[in-house]
Simulated scan of single mutants.
Amino acid sequence: MVHPYAVTGFLLAVLPLIATPGASLALLIQHVTDSGRRQALPVVLGTVTGLYVHATLAMAGLSALVMHSSLAFTAVKLIGAVYLIGLGLWTWRSAAPNATPVPSRQRLPKGSDSAYAQALLANVLNPKAAGIYLTLVPQFIAPHEPFGGQILTLATVHALLIALWLATWTFLILRASHALNGPRFKRAAAQATSVVLITFGIRSAVT
């Protein structure tokens, strides 16, 4: 069992990381602006699932292997970067006002399944997210207690906090959408999302 003081310390340590805009927030803005509040849930669930994937990999030691192998780390980082840049370019292309219609087989899907998958991949393919469970989480684990349950407890706390953060942003996005409803706002939001995704992809590739 994780000590309450350790949980509080972990929350304070991870809060700045959650509050820093990232791919999950960018995807939330895109999907909620484009398709409404129902698209918020799959983005949140995809992000939370990604956290549990990292927690599970950390318990299995696979994340440690990736983080300590320069080749494996670089491969994961580049795959994640390519994914974010590609997703950003698709988003920009779909938002262009006079863009040539994309064939249905090539069009970026916008359903709940795709929102979930995009958020999941954006989190799983982010080595820095894995780093939280390899560098930050161990600081709040008691060595004499079973570490598996402690990691899952901290992952659940992490998931609840990030779900609350994204839910707050969903409310703000919906308020802005109602106030600025129209194709121009949706196009601007999609273009801003694409810029964020591409920026994070490039940053991931070069850092």
Rank of each mutant, 00 (worst) to 15 (best):
Trp90Leu: 14
Gly149Trp: 06
Ala176Pro: 02
Ser63Ala: 14
His158Arg: 02
Met59Leu: 15
Gly61Tyr: 14
Gly149Asn: 05
Ala72Phe: 14
Ile202Gln: 01
Ala55His: 02
Thr91Arg: 10
Tyr83Arg: 07
Tyr116Arg: 07
His158Gly: 03
Leu174Ile: 13
Gln150Lys: 05
Thr8Arg: 09
Gln118Tyr: 15
Ala23Cys: 09
Ala188Asn: 10
Phe147Trp: 14
Ala190Gly: 11
Arg38Asn: 00
Ile29Ser: 13
Gln191Trp: 14
Leu161Ile: 08
Gly9Ala: 15
Ala19Trp: 12
Val66Glu: 02
Ser204Ala: 10
Val137Thr: 11
Ala192Asp: 03
Gly88Arg: 02
Thr33Gly: 11
Ala190Tyr: 08
Gly86Cys: 05
Thr156Asp: 01
Gly50Cys: 06
Phe73His: 10
Gly111Arg: 12
Ala122Cys: 14
Pro183Gly: 01
Leu136Met: 15
Ala130Asn: 03
Gly149Ile: 05
Pro138Met: 13
Gln39Ser: 08
Ala26Val: 08
Ile162Glu: 03
Ala167Gln: 09
Arg187Met: 13
Thr193Ile: 06
Val14Pro: 01
Tyr52Leu: 12
His68Phe: 10
Gly182Glu: 04
Asp113Pro: 01
Phe171Pro: 00
Pro109Glu: 11
Thr8Asp: 07
Gln118Ile: 11
Tyr133Val: 01
Arg93Cys: 05
Arg105Trp: 11
Gly149Gln: 04
Ala64Val: 08
Ala117Asn: 11
